[in-house]
Nucleic acid binder design. Sequence first.
DNA 1: GCGCTTTACTGAAACGCTTCAGAAAGATCG
DNA 2: CGATCTTTCTGAAGCGTTTCAGTAAAGCGC
Lengths: 348, 348
Amino acid sequence: MPYVMVQIPNSAAPAAPQPRSVPTSADVARLAGVSRATVSYVLNNTSAVRISEPTRRRVHEAAEELGYVPHAAARSLRAGHSRMVLMPAPNVPIGPLYSQFINELQWALSRLDYTVVQYASVGLRGDEAARAWAELRPAAVLVPVGGLGPQGVAVLKRSGARAVVTLGSERIEGAHSLLIDHEGVGRVAGAHLYARGRRRIGVVVPEEPGLKVFSKPRLDGVRGALEGTDATVTVLPLAYEEESAARLAARWPELGLDAVFGFNDEYAMLLMRALQDEGVTVPDDTALVGADDLILGRLLRPRLSTVHIELPAGRDLAELVDRAVRNPGATPETHHVLGATLVHRDSS
Amino acid sequence: MPYVMVQIPNSAAPAAPQPRSVPTSADVARLAGVSRATVSYVLNNTSAVRISEPTRRRVHEAAEELGYVPHAAARSLRAGHSRMVLMPAPNVPIGPLYSQFINELQWALSRLDYTVVQYASVGLRGDEAARAWAELRPAAVLVPVGGLGPQGVAVLKRSGARAVVTLGSERIEGAHSLLIDHEGVGRVAGAHLYARGRRRIGVVVPEEPGLKVFSKPRLDGVRGALEGTDATVTVLPLAYEEESAARLAARWPELGLDAVFGFNDEYAMLLMRALQDEGVTVPDDTALVGADDLILGRLLRPRLSTVHIELPAGRDLAELVDRAVRNPGATPETHHVLGATLVHRDSS
DNA sequence: GCGCTTTACTGAAACGCTTCAGAAAGATCG
DNA sequence: CGATCTTTCTGAAGCGTTTCAGTAAAGCGC
């Protein structure tokens, strides 16, 4: 029995209020003694139409009294477009770095008067997901990682999305792309380890399926950095559990590695502990580099070297979205986000 | 210059397709040579009306050819209600435990045919936020932490939300409440430390503002557990930075504490490292307990004792939501989620 | 061939909002 | 005083769906 939900009897059972239907602008109009048009003009501060002060007040009072809240669907149906920016929520927890970026982005977009909505399409894949998003008729769709092909982009555009922006390591036909340079992350790590004199270099690749979109380019980056040198690259599958790390560490002598890029700080920390428990000393026997520059990485001993990743400022991405929405016909922009720098601490 | 966004010229500039207006069900009807009603019946598989197989096929083909995607706003406008469950996205990153819970919940709700939407209302507070949510006319609103008063609940209900469920440590009038027993977390930690013979007990309280909703009840829980004993409780404000932890650790001799509840594993780890750097030994000089049972807590030495928190299964919460939506008049349920158990490792 | 049911569909209304075109009433002007 | 302008407001259309009520055609029993 994994958990318990205990119902507590409520002390005061409030009389269920009669289910009045929700007030519409027509109700407001009736109460204020004006037309629906006037209500709309007043509540939206429409500048093209002048409404006298007394009327304005009556409308506002009526709206207040009824607790009127406009109906977003009706509004955007009439308007023919929305100010909604859809962001498929990643189904993999991606850590504090990313969620802070999301926050910043949302803030920036809301400044530009967009409404950011995170939409989880759990089971759906590919075009099915795109269809589901398209039903909401968002002004723009911001796709964080993989999971959307050119077909999906086409579906979204056909259904009126004025901008599709992808955020990942690959460009997608038809969409604006913000290329996050995951390869660069691997490249920086690989180059650093090589420069420290390491030659037999392992690369942790998480077994968790959702992380492949990150791990693949990072691995490629390490490979790229070492191409043409005498260094070798060994792929190290690792699940995020202590036992998996212990198993990997137990094979260490036979692997004969003198350095590891740990995919990110969390996996690196996990592996470091397992290695130390196996009697492998870091960095003497094996150097270790993580990525993401988490605070926790500084708490281990030796302190974890890491690749600091600079995500684009939310404000800039928000402006890209806004530009794209304003000018939907323009050719998709492709931006390269640079931001991998090595933070050298004690583990390498 | 915190980051760089480099624009890469696109190789192939695809000719901007003429902005055909997005196809509606009327277009599908025209192409298939049937009425809009028929299109609706076919595409929704309406069981009450029989449509012949050839007609069905023609409609489906037409829809496919045009790339028709229904308009959610129009649909829910007509229907008078939606299957949308709104979840205000917390603006504080709340760690892997919580985000896994969210995932599970979304999955469970989508099984019940709800659409889960996370909505960030960054700047807004209290009733303003409730208003913004109400505009979307969700079937239910699921409010994770604080930030919604009885007034907000009233606004939502008046605008047609059939269920408002709060998820936190306080009950809110008019809403179904799932009380997550943060006090229990503190209580368990406090009792454990007392049982281990500790009497001068510190409690870390994060300075990050968004975390107060958690830290307050946890602190109360520790106090509650120690009430009537000879133990003392000392509040230890701590920001999530190394310097803050170092400053706190430097004051350790004068504080004279023999135990600390670290709010959660992350803060506990931060503090543990600072204490060790200060020459304080854990657990001999000072015992330490975290919370959340993160994997990383097992990686430090000594291994971190922690309070394991069992969140409700997403499936059960989803069922609560569904029940509430089906029967909006019912008195709000209050459930108590029990789930704090101490995991004793080496740090206490 | 007549009434009846069944089948397969269609017309039109309604959901709540915005906005265009116009109207009532007063102000201004020649 | 009639014509014109300004101010302040209103009527009605329309956004894309769903669905109720209705209808034409066909089938059936007699």
